[in-house]
């Protein structure tokens, strides 16, 4: 069960609209390495995770990702809410605007709709944790690319905060992987799948 907190994890106050920035940032809402996929990945994987500490890491990081989804959506909203139609046309936001006006919808920067095909829930503790570590790195790369494309410091501060969280999550998933491996046969980590083969 979840409850909502009327508070962003990090403050966001953008004073100037910027459709070009919004168009690339929205990929971290609904794109292949975005926060919606991140939340769904971890919150889906945790049910079959037999190590309670690791299930806790998946729950807590998955929950934080919901907060990041809210932050990315807030960025897109504040960057687009005051755009004029002339700016929308000049800055290439018309292809999004025609379908969604300035509403928030999960898609990749190139227009591809959000898809659960962008993440895995494999039902294997090692496979899922390697997936999670890779996912955090992919999101970190995406934030690095956004920092190359955006110049408003009000936006960059928020992106830098989100980027740093990817690094922290990568670290925690690495430790979670250690918890799983410590419990497995160190001569053959793959002797059985602890999420299915009950041999422990």
């Amino acid at each position: 069960m979840w409850t909502y907190e009327k508070m962003l994890q990090f403050p966001i106050k953008i004073s100037k609209p910027d459709a070009k920035a919004a168009k690339v940032i929205m990929t971290q809402f609904g794109g292949p390495d975005g926060e919606l996929g991140a939340a769904m990945r971890y919150l889906s994987q945790r049910y079959s995770m037999p190590y309670r500490k690791v299930a806790g890491v998946l729950t807590d990081i998955g929950t934080e990702e919901l907060g990041h989804m809210e932050m990315v959506s807030t960025l897109v909203w504040q960057l687009t809410r005051n755009l004029s139609v002339d700016q929308i046309k000049a800055e290439g936001y018309d292809t999004y605007f025609v379908d969604h006006t300035v509403g928030i919808w999960p898609q990749a920067a190139g227009g591809m709709p959000f898809s659960s095909a962008t993440f895995a829930s494999k039902g294997d503790a090692l496979t899922d944790l390697f997936e999670d570590m890779a996912a955090e790195q992919k999101a970190r790369t995406t934030y690095d690319n956004i920092l190359r494309l955006v110049d408003n410091p009000e936006v960059k501060d928020v992106i830098r905060f989100l980027r740093e969280r990817e690094i922290v999550h990568f670290q925690r998933f690495g430790e979670a992987l250690g918890i799983v491996q410590d419990d497995l046969n160190c001569k053959n980590f793959y002797a059985f799948n602890p999420e299915f083969d009950r041999k422990r």
């Binding site: 069960m1 945790r46 049910y47 309670r52 299930a55 806790g56 729950t59």
Partner: peptide, 9 residues
């Protein structure tokens, strides 16, 4: 103690 004890599922 947060990660001790059963998860709801």
């Amino acid at each position: 103690t947060w990660v001790e004890g059963p998860w709801p599922w």
